[in-house]
Design a protein around this nucleic acid. Structure first.
Lengths: 201, 201
DNA sequence: CCATTTTGTTACCAACTGGTAATTTATTCC
DNA sequence: GGAATAAATTACCAGTTGGTAACAAAATGG
């Protein structure tokens, strides 16, 4: 999908591996917080010079946007897979609980939620991308819950939209709590409690 | 409580009003985020010079700690009042929902929750204070729910500790969502849904 | 009037931020 | 063996950060 560099015929061969830089940046952003990792630090960790990075990504905003794209397709896709897995309400909720409260990848939180929480600190490109992903996630939650309502298991007096947003926010809350070192068993317990509103008589 | 300055007999009279500086800083921290407001900006807004501020508060950490103390007794106390108001479960939960989703003071979020969310960016004094307040709040939630369980209205299979933490996190979530401009009616709806787990048969 | 004490002000510090101009190095085409 | 081209490196830029040293101003005590 991304416009691949057609490897120019002439000129000094590139030492820098863009994918490696993205991996380094993603790990750093993910482990701490995008706002707490400078481009200088990323260059140092990736073993490249600043102008190299800027030639490849244009700006800090461009880099963080590229990182977010990578994160979306490598990690965030997992949530969409669960939602579109064709399971019934209960099974899907259980899978979401497992993912949020036990998947080792979420041990230091979710990069997307960290970016969303600090949205005002992001550059315009990245911020727009965050909002797009947020909207796509919301749409996926809506589609899932809609199918559940069509299948019959749905509590009275709750709009699909509100339920979808609620579901998304509870997942975000659980994962964010993991990033702050909260007891995983307790997080699971609270998340199960929060989502029990969907499966009560 | 605070060690009042005994007004020295000699020396140039002070122009700076420490309380005013605290108000200015609290408003700024509260409206945006402590991490996004520099001491330079506060000095400018308060119309004082940096050395004056540093003589009074010692460091940025000292200032933010003083601001947090002020915020706790001026604003956060409200939550403790609700919890210790002697109302039954349902009434107290409704009051908490009202406070979190409609009180105009929470329109730009809660300074305490903003500090807690960005704990790693705070100085040591302020961070310790945040943890103390967090523990005090948790204790208040526990005491309240314990009294409810003693009174009989309590769902089976839920520990008081877990319920208390759940309650606190749902309040934090609701208020944080207000800060990000979410539809207040929707926030209320979701919070009511989250807290309905306490009042279901 | 003068020394003392306390406050306020100006101007500065080193460290760091995102970002770049200038130059050197390595390659291919002719 | 040169041009031409593209990448890498070095050294820098202005702006901001938290924090301070040096000094001036305003009060009181003798």
């Amino acid at each position: 999908m991304g416009a691949d560099k057609p490897k120019p015929a002439r000129g000094r061969p590139r030492k820098m591996n863009a994918e490696n830089v993205l991996d380094v940046a993603m790990t750093a952003y993910w482990q701490s917080d995008p706002a707490d990792v400078s481009v200088n630090a990323i260059c140092q960790m990736a073993g490249i010079s600043k102008p190299s990075l800027y030639r490849e990504f244009g700006s800090e905003d461009g880099l963080s946007r590229a990182v977010l794209d990578r994160y979306a397709e490598q990690v965030l896709s997992e949530i969409f897979v669960i939602l579109q897995g064709g399971m019934r309400l209960r099974g899907t909720l259980d899978a979401l609980i497992d993912f949020a409260s036990d998947d080792p990848r979420m041990e230091t939180g979710c990069l997307f939620y960290k970016m969303r929480a600090g949205k005002h600190r992001l550059g315009p490109e990245t911020r727009v991308r965050v909002e797009e992903i947020d909207a796509a996630a919301q749409a996926a939650y809506v589609a899932f819950l809609q199918s559940c309502r069509d299948a019959g298991d749905w509590p009275d007096g709750l709009s699909v939209d509100a339920g979808a947003q609620y579901l998304g926010e509870q997942i975000a809350l659980a994962i964010t709590q993991r990033a702050s070192g909260e007891n995983p068993a307790r997080i699971r317990e609270m998340m199960a409690l929060a989502l029990s509103v969907f499966t009560r008589p």
